[in-house]
Write a protein that binds this DNA or RNA. Sequence first.
RNA 1: GCGCGGUUAGCUCAGUUGGUAGAGCAACCCGUUUACACCGGGAAGGUCGCAGGUUCGAGUCCUGCACCGCGCACCA
Length: 708
Amino acid sequence: MAIDEKLLKPYDPGATEEKIYRLWEESGFFNPDNLPGTRKDSFTIIMPPPNVTGVLHMGHALMLTLEDIMIRYKRMQGYKTLWLPGTDHAAIATQAKVEKEIQKKEGKSRHDLGREEMLKRIEAFAKESHDTIVSQIKVMGASCDWSREAFTLDEQRNLSVNTMFKKMYDDGLIYRGNRIVNWDPKGQTTISDDEIVYEERKAKIYTFKYSKDFPISISTTRPETKVGDVAVAVHPEDSRYKKFVGKEYDLEFCGIPLHIKIVADKAVEKDFGTGALGVTPAHSMTDWEIADRHDLPRPQVINEYAKMTVGGENLMGKKTTEAREVIVEWLKEQGLLEKEEEINQNVGTAERTGGIIEPLPKLQWFVAVNKEIPGRGKTLKDLMREPLLKKEIKIIPDYFDKTYFHWIENLRDWCISRQIWYGHRVPVWYKDDEKKVSNISPGEEWKQDEDTLDTWFSAGMWTFSTLGWPASVKTTAGKPDKTKDLETYHPTDVLETGYEILFFWVARMILMSEYALGEIPFHTVYLHGTVRDAKGRRMSKSLGNGIDPLEIAKKYGADAGRMALVAGTAPGTDSRVDENKIKGYKNFANKIWNITRFVLDNQKEPDSKNTLLEEFNKIAQDITADMENYRFHLASEKIYQYIWHRFADEIVEESKKNEKIKKVLLPIWQDCLKILHPFMPFVTEEIWQIMNPENLLMVETWPIQKND
RNA sequence: GCGCGGUUAGCUCAGUUGGUAGAGCAACCCGUUUACACCGGGAAGGUCGCAGGUUCGAGUCCUGCACCGCGCACCA
């Protein structure tokens, strides 16, 4: 074999990677329908869809690397491998981003533009963002099936979502109710419990009595909400207050008449503050529940703009923070204020907008998680728990099981309606006094619900909505048969994602799949950690410490970036980006390049009997076991160690003196390339093309067949 | 408050069912001999957070403690 001229120069990823990706794409092998040979067993990963809010970050790069490693390994093992890519409309995040931009550039709000125009703008942004993301995924070398690409907000997914909504509604699992919800005054929408981020802040806590003749003092950090109080709750065992329980008082608080009942409730902690809690049902989650238990009224005193809705001129229409000062002033004047202390308080803020959450009672759509599903004798919570208890689903690393169960314990009904425009609209239509829940529009004369659905509602269906559930009536010729895909590829094999969305997403996918299909969405959940900067800090826009995976690919090659991300990074643990490490793997790519040159220069008739072959075989088996057991962090280091420090440093060196060894160089080297391929697909494929231009390494057979 | 994880070489981290402690980078010495200086050879470096326990044997299993990080809840 003549030595390719390219091999005489150092390896240049920039001149190689794009060309190789095109070669793969043109082969059609990303699509499982086109794979060579008979492939009985399928292996499926549905890609966690990146949000169309911007560009890929290192976390995405790690995700793509791990998933591509699994897919490439299984493809070489002879599986019918499907890796289905997609993007997420990320409702609140995307709308908030576009709104902010328009506000900044044009000084207009979404209401100035109107629903239709605003949606057009968001869609244009999403489209652009989508295109960028797709090209970035390709740069990373992801061998996913673009012919099946999905978007969480496209037509097929909308049909899935609406069908699911109707099914749940008909089963009584979705209901509309006036309940207290987390209201984000900044984003002007409700959000779910999981979208709240608690921030510790200093706050003042005031201790006072409503009026001079009221017997009990209460403490609060939010005196302005006290105009909505209907009761004072004390612990049932609290001897200080027992004698007051059941009594009712009429009084005037800052000009507002209040009717306060003393109730006993075990939710109250005796030792906190005065041990007595002023109950504001409409503006506190705990208080709402207390009101439930004691059948108390729930007057609302704050509106959606975090402004007061009661009182005279001094309060009405004021922001809560201003109203607070008014009330504190009044308390001081009246001589009612007993104490004013500074405390650390966790303030709930909206994850996406940063707005301070204002609990408010609102008419919203909910998913009932504790209600029995008709005919199944189980609740949705049960459906989420069972597959893990029965070990049908395995989480890696397994210690996340406990966190998962703990979260389910604390789960309350899931508020799924959002007052934003970008997203799946609630599939409920109204006409006069009639209401219709349907998966398609019942006609022009019907008016659709204004709200949209929580983005996790559609994301929860991702493993099967992407495979065509429910079977679409509009499936066009040439496109994959949707129903057949669902049969072939579901349940999927692995869900690979970051541990931070275990609750948001993983739990909801299990819920949705178990409920709609009666089967698990995936067998294995592989959780990766957070990629941090060199100092161990989370990468964020505000810190400006983000590292762009594309820059890395450009500077060192995607192969080097992939190896650096995965080698030595155990599942579930956070890692740091270290440019030196990446550089080391760039050097490794060049080392491979040079080894190839030497091997091709020194080819001899292969010998099949040599202890070196046996030694290699053992290592290959060991690595295969690692691959089967998701130990990619070990497999990658082992092949690296073998290639550089055993094969190159010792075997190649020895072969310079021993002609017999030269006879095993090529066979071992070819297998090394195969094993390294899932990790560093570009450079290995490029070399393979020089050695065997008629075949693609991507679909070569893995040296060791399944061995666990 | 409840729970989870971490603590291993100067730094960043691996260490699979318990069996004589590993890698990368950095630092030290030497080296251009049939690929590669994006290189090679060599040497150095650890009482595996602390205290107990189980075991023939513990970085690995159990108990307690300390510090760091994280999640959930509370937050009147």
